[in-house]
Amino acid sequence: MKTNLQHIFVSIVLIFTCFLTSANSNVNAKDKFVVVLDAGHGGKDPGKPSKKGYKEKDIALKIVLAIGKELEKNPDIKVVYTRKTDVFIGLFQRGKIANKAKADLFVSIHCNAHNTQAYGSETYVLGLHRNETNFNVAKAENEVISYEEDYQKTYAGFDPNSPESYIGLTLMQEEYLDQSIQLASNIQKQFTHKLKRKNRGVKQAGFIVLHQTVMPSVLVETGFITNNHEGKYLNSGKGQKELATAIKDAILEYKNSVQQNVSGHVFDDSTPINEDLVNDEVLTYDDIVFKVQIAASSRNLKAKSYNFKGLSDISKVKVGKLYKYYYGNTSDLNEIRRLETIAKEKGYTSSFVVAFKDGEQIKLSEALKTSKN
């Protein structure tokens, strides 16, 4: 009888231990920073051609697997791959994989091509093409939808050859644009400063694969497979390892910045305030509230001064998975510029002024056009 009781007791302890372990695993899994790595092309879609016989789909996959191997060394990061072998995955399905994983980042890896000896690296975020070159890059990547069954139905008549088809693509990614640009900038900085690659910049274009995702997303053109020197570099183990390490470091830099009190970069696409308007007079605007955006983070921090280098009057707004933090609350333009100066002196060097009307953020340029008291 005593033996039976001991067995029962041991069983209960084991079950309880397993329950706690499972519970902790679930909590840890939820707490992990999820990165989806997307190797462009694959299977029946070889990607861009090269006279030297280099295959974009193979290069992209090797770089992705190398990035993932390095990222997986971090216990607080979960890596999800859209493909780990030479298989064809539709653009819609790639985005679906990322959304299902509730990813914090989506990074798509590609190689560029041109009929000249063009070279260099560039990283794209979703947006309207600012020039014909950007349009042609996106067009080349988007044409792979023709490999998919029923693509006319899946993409609702989207035509990769028509500039007009791209106008509606940007809407879903607008709220993640700042973060996408931040990651893209990190990647280009790594390529330029550490690898000494030619920097072709951070650009916007209408990539379908980025449109399908609901998280910060970038598409990396690691270099030109058609360039004699760069193509050889891209196809080499050394080149692939170096590019993978650079992208890994950029992702970690982004992760650390958004999980700290303040992101490393805060991007402002509003109109700068005319310094001539800032003077000693009271300059207030009807129905407008100005704030200084000082931080963007995935962490939900208490709006207390101890979290923000002693600054008080902190407020926050959740946008997607990100929390935006603001300093100050005033209708006085001179006062908000004074607070912006204080924020910058505290170390928030990328802070900037934003405007709200009826609780909704509006463009600063629009706010400055409203009537003043």
Rank of each mutant, 00 (worst) to 15 (best):
Q6K: 15
C18R: 02
S25K: 13
A29Y: 09
V36K: 05
A39P: 01
H41E: 01
G42M: 03
D45R: 06
P46A: 04
G47Q: 14
K52R: 15
A60I: 04
L65C: 03
P75V: 13
I77M: 11
V87F: 05
I89A: 06
L91M: 14
K102V: 11
L105C: 07
V107E: 01
S108G: 09
I109S: 02
N112Y: 08
H114Y: 07
A118V: 06
Y124C: 07
L126D: 07
G127V: 08
N131V: 08
N131D: 14
Y147G: 07
D150Y: 13
Y151P: 06
K153F: 07
T154E: 07
F158M: 04
N161P: 05
E164Y: 13
I181S: 02
Q182N: 06
S185K: 09
H193V: 14
G201S: 04
Q212D: 12
V218A: 00
L219Y: 05
V220N: 11
E221P: 08
E221S: 12
E221Y: 13
I225G: 03
Y233G: 02
L234K: 06
E242R: 08
A246Q: 04
L252Y: 02
V262K: 12
D269F: 01
V282M: 06
L283D: 11
Y285W: 11
D287Q: 14
I288M: 01
K291W: 10
A295S: 13
S298D: 04
S312Q: 10
S312L: 11
D313G: 05
K318G: 05
L322Q: 15
L322H: 10
Y323K: 05
Y327N: 05
N329V: 03
D332N: 15
T341M: 07
A343M: 10
S351R: 03
E360Y: 08
I362W: 09
L364R: 15
